[in-house]
């Protein structure tokens, strides 16, 4: 501020501006900064070793493994014994179609085949097939066709007389 006993408006503006930022910091400011620096400088435990983070992570891993095992488990024996209805089912459905009134019978009877569950991993009993006895077939060699000459007479067309239109 100027030494002028009567201040100008600018001096008052400057003074008010100074006053707006003149609130001092809290008395324990330096101590609090030191505490924060000390806590920041302290060696931190690695984030991956914190139990609060590790416990749910481990639980999630166990859950995932359990789900995977359940999905890849071998199906029970009852499922393996389900007969394959591919051939037998078709006549049944066709017969049902014949029993219906003629008007409702479609022209083409759809043959539905039931879905056979794929059991890739189940061990099936090995089927032994005996060798078939087949008589020897002697096949004569092919006779080469003789070259034939075909003579075609010229086509004779009789003259057609057409009377003049009346």
């Amino acid at each position: 501020m100027s030494d002028d006993p009567i201040p100008s408006i600018d001096a008052v503006i400057d003074d008010v501006a100074r006053e707006m930022t003149s609130t001092p910091a809290r008395a324990d400011f330096v101590e609090r900064v030191e505490m924060r620096i000390a806590s920041a400088a302290a060696p931190r435990r690695a984030i991956w070793t914190r139990p609060a983070l590790l416990a749910p992570l481990a639980a999630a891993c166990v859950l995932v493994v359990a789900v995977l095992l359940a999905r890849h488990r071998t199906p029970p024996a009852e499922q393996l014994r389900i007969p394959a209805p591919s051939v037998a089912a078709a006549p049944t459905i066709a017969r049902r179609a014949e029993e219906r009134p003629a008007a409702r019978v479609p022209t083409v009877v759809p043959v539905q085949t039931a879905r056979v569950p794929r059991v890739a991993t189940s061990p099936l009993p090995k089927i032994e097939i005996a060798p078939l006895d087949v008589e020897r077939l002697d096949v004569a060699p092919m006779v080469q066709a003789q070259q034939l000459e075909i003579e075609i007479d010229p086509i004779a067309i009789a003259r057609i007389e057409i009377p003049p239109m009346p």
Binding site: T23, V33, R36, I37, A40
Partner: peptide, 17 residues
């Protein structure tokens, strides 16, 4: 003043780091 205290503390911490 409260926010200024926080900002000043953060500034000193950052300066230290």
């Amino acid at each position: 003043t409260t926010d200024a205290d926080d900002v000043a503390q953060e500034a000193f911490l950052l300066a230290y780091q």
